[in-house]
Amino acid sequence: MTVTRKIAVTVNGLRREAEVPVRLTLADLLRKKFELTGTHLGCEHGVCGACTVLFDGVSVRACLMLAVQADNHAIETVEGLAAADAPLNDLQQAFSDKHALQCGFCTPGILMTLTEFLRDNPVVSEEDIKIAISGNICRCTGYQPIVEAAMQVVKARQGNPS
């Protein structure tokens, strides 16, 4: 009954192969097959943004894509931002500095959203950041410290650490 297909996906720079049921979601591919559990599922209907990953550099909801769609594409997840024993990257460090996470469940999705946004938009205002993360729901922080963390990165990358 279950139709499967062989796929090859580059995940955080590493080429990986898998044979997957055609109905397997991209999120479940990452979480279950590749054991990259940093990508979280908060709603599984594309609203909360917790499962946001980068697909060929562009943010997507991993709950709304199928694993087979990732065949021959590149995926970046939160695990790719800093190696297990490496220092946090500037955005991650800013989140810690500004208390921009509490339970941390939505955090990976917000980090990936901002990774793309700040890469493409190095000069932004607080309002721009609010709009950029408006597709990610956080129940703990009230968003304000997340915006502050992003602004710290914006300033630091421009050579004006706050």
Partner: peptide, 17 residues
Amino acid sequence: EDRSLLTGRARFVEDIG
């Protein structure tokens, strides 16, 4: 708490395999 949560290496219940 922050480091594991920020690097995707936390262990929520769904992550326990």
